[in-house]
Simulated scan of single mutants.
Amino acid sequence: MKYLIEHADIYTPTGIIHNGKILISGHTIQRILTDSDPIPLDNLESYTVINAKRSCVIPGFIDLHSHGGGGADVTDASSDSIETFINFHLNHGTTGLMLTTMSGVPIKELSYHVEQLGKAMDTHESVVGVHLEGPYLNPEYAGMLPPEKLRIPNIKELEQLVDASYDTVRMLTLSPELEGALEMIQFCNEYGIIAALGHTGADYELVMKAITLGASHVTHIFNAMEPLHHRYPGALGAALMDDRLSVQLICDGIHLHPLIVKMVVRLKSCFNVCLVTDAMRAAGMPDGEYMLGNFEKVHYHNGIVKDEKGNLASTGMTMLDAFRNILSFGDVSLSEAIHMTSTTPARVLGLQDYIGAIKEGLDADILIIDDELQIKSVFLKGKKLL
């Protein structure tokens, strides 16, 4: 299918083209034209024309951290449930999704989950990989995860999980203070897996060492981490101040106060912040009780997910929610928001030559949004889905 999108404000890496035009052919962005540029085609009649007046064209969202949505999650481990989860987020603008494990299950069960998630990458073009959140995490900073199910780093075990995923594991979140974690970070660096630090009480000096061995990312900054102390900066101080670390940020106004969101963006810039959902199965569902993975009952009410003790447990948000929120209280421009929801996550994944921006030659993963930040159209690899 071929499309001509016209009369749109197009957000490109080099600036905004007002009242511009985009030609989509096959799975790629063929041309980006200004209002005055002639359309260089002899067969324009073969293109479906979309009038995007009073709308913006932006790249599809990329979520590095999502466990579920639409009533399904990764622990369901069935192709139908995984498809429900993927399509829910796709319909809310996420054209690049990292399927993120939950480490509250035995290792054999986790291996089976990873296998099913890896298979999904063959059949769903929006899936960009598998993110292992653990199981090599510090039990003292377990957050929503059952601490007794977390494990000491074991490289042979990790290799088995990667093999089970059909080599689709792109990111591993681990606690660097655990015995064997530094060796695991080095292993990840050698095998092209992003080593992300999270659920951690590590000190600043240890994090510096982890960075030299290849750690490059921080999972949901501030959450499940030792708080910042003026004499002991710790992992949080390193995450905020070292530009070798990009960070995930849950921008729901609940996990982080809006002022903290502004602070993180000011310190890290939009070039080192990735907005994530950390969503679970309740995303997009009515208020009520839901299972967090297959190990705990949680309560979802007014967009907030809490466990039986009242602790925050994942989220019920989409990347569209995160995009709107950062524009509402993050003190950023729309272009900066695009970096945090698309361009920076693509770079973190090493996929910037394929996705994450409106640029000629890149995949046509495109959203058309109106001036009220409602999605009018979703394109995935040049196919119009909405």
Score class of each variant (00 low, 15 high):
9 D>H: 08
368 I>A: 04
310 G>Y: 00
178 L>C: 05
47 Y>D: 05
98 M>R: 00
181 A>L: 08
279 A>R: 13
291 M>Q: 14
262 K>R: 15
337 A>T: 00
155 I>V: 13
224 A>G: 10
177 E>I: 03
109 E>V: 11
181 A>S: 13
192 G>N: 12
13 P>I: 10
195 A>Y: 00
371 D>R: 15
224 A>Q: 09
193 I>A: 07
37 D>G: 03
44 L>G: 08
261 V>R: 00
345 P>N: 08
197 L>A: 02
313 A>L: 07
22 I>A: 13
195 A>W: 00
130 V>M: 01
68 G>C: 04
2 K>T: 12
233 P>L: 15
377 S>E: 15
81 S>L: 06
286 P>G: 07
259 L>G: 11
273 V>N: 02
123 T>S: 14
305 V>H: 04
136 Y>P: 11
201 G>F: 03
238 A>D: 01
337 A>S: 01
118 G>V: 06
351 L>T: 00
47 Y>K: 05
282 A>L: 08
280 M>N: 13
254 I>S: 05
68 G>F: 02
239 A>G: 14
370 D>S: 11
96 G>A: 09
199 H>I: 03
286 P>R: 10
85 F>K: 05
320 L>M: 14
24 I>K: 04
223 N>T: 01
216 S>K: 15
70 G>K: 04
315 T>E: 11
340 M>A: 07
252 D>S: 08
128 V>A: 13
55 S>I: 01
189 N>F: 08
66 S>Y: 07
352 Q>D: 14
12 T>S: 02
31 R>V: 06
44 L>S: 12
153 P>V: 05
117 L>C: 07
266 R>P: 01
135 P>F: 00
166 Y>N: 12
306 K>T: 15
44 L>H: 07
182 L>D: 02
236 L>T: 13
184 M>C: 07
232 Y>T: 12
180 G>C: 01
106 P>G: 03
294 N>K: 13
292 L>D: 02
243 D>W: 01
254 I>Y: 13
61 F>Y: 15
161 L>Q: 03
185 I>Q: 08
362 L>C: 07
372 E>L: 14
385 L>C: 01
117 L>E: 06
296 E>S: 15
334 L>Y: 03
121 M>L: 14
198 G>H: 09
303 G>P: 05
